[in-house]
Amino acid sequence: MSVHEELTSVQKSLDDLTRSVRRLEQQVGDGLDVRRVRTDCEHLRESVALLRQAVAAPAAPAAPKRPELVTIPDTPYDNSLWVDTDDEGLGARDRRAP
């Protein structure tokens, strides 16, 4: 069988399952377990739809992206940015290390 035929078969089986769950819900009532099964059926239906879309239009291989270049200026940084910090590993400013 082709992929399209397999997906059609799965879709028919899901339709049968959904009808069976509805009949069961009418007989048993809208309990937590039945709602969970109904939600699982809906998730399966969405997953099969996504699979059908993925098979129908295979994605073209994307060209590898080049990383964005960041230009670092050669000019020195403004010293006022570091007036309230200490030099790491060298102790506090204006004091000598022990």
Rank of each mutant, 00 (worst) to 15 (best):
residue 72 I to H: 01
residue 75 T to W: 06
residue 27 Q to S: 12
residue 13 S to R: 11
residue 47 S to T: 14
residue 69 L to M: 11
residue 77 Y to G: 09
residue 59 A to V: 08
residue 87 D to G: 09
residue 86 D to C: 09
residue 79 N to G: 10
residue 1 M to E: 08
residue 75 T to Q: 07
residue 71 T to P: 06
residue 60 A to D: 03
residue 62 A to Y: 01
residue 12 K to V: 10
residue 58 P to K: 00
residue 76 P to H: 00
residue 53 Q to V: 05
residue 64 P to C: 03
residue 42 E to W: 11
residue 24 L to Y: 05
residue 48 V to M: 01
residue 64 P to N: 02
residue 26 Q to T: 14
residue 38 R to C: 02
residue 35 R to A: 04
residue 28 V to S: 06
residue 23 R to C: 08
residue 8 T to Y: 08
residue 29 G to P: 00
residue 58 P to N: 00
residue 22 R to P: 00
residue 63 A to S: 06
residue 22 R to S: 13
residue 50 L to S: 10
residue 47 S to G: 15
residue 50 L to T: 08
residue 52 R to C: 03
residue 94 D to V: 10
residue 54 A to E: 14
residue 42 E to K: 06
residue 51 L to Y: 04
residue 7 L to M: 02
residue 3 V to C: 03
residue 59 A to C: 02
residue 28 V to M: 03
residue 85 T to P: 01
residue 54 A to Y: 08
residue 34 V to E: 01
residue 5 E to D: 14
residue 33 D to L: 12
residue 38 R to E: 07
residue 57 A to M: 09
residue 73 P to S: 05
residue 67 P to K: 08
residue 65 K to E: 14
residue 56 A to G: 02
residue 23 R to K: 15
residue 57 A to F: 04
residue 15 D to K: 13
residue 14 L to Y: 03
residue 16 D to C: 06
residue 50 L to P: 04
residue 55 V to R: 00
residue 19 R to E: 15
residue 16 D to P: 04
residue 65 K to F: 07
residue 2 S to L: 02
residue 41 C to P: 03
residue 19 R to A: 15
residue 73 P to C: 02
residue 19 R to L: 07
residue 35 R to E: 13
residue 86 D to Y: 07
residue 55 V to P: 05
residue 94 D to G: 13
residue 1 M to H: 06
residue 93 R to I: 06
residue 62 A to M: 08
residue 27 Q to K: 10
residue 9 S to F: 05
residue 92 A to H: 11
residue 23 R to M: 13
residue 17 L to A: 13
residue 63 A to C: 04
residue 70 V to H: 06
residue 46 E to D: 10
residue 73 P to N: 00
residue 89 G to K: 02
residue 44 L to T: 00
residue 24 L to A: 12
residue 53 Q to I: 05
residue 4 H to A: 15
residue 68 E to Q: 06
residue 37 V to Y: 04
residue 7 L to K: 01
residue 28 V to C: 04
residue 45 R to E: 12
residue 69 L to C: 12
residue 94 D to T: 12
residue 6 E to V: 10
residue 76 P to V: 02
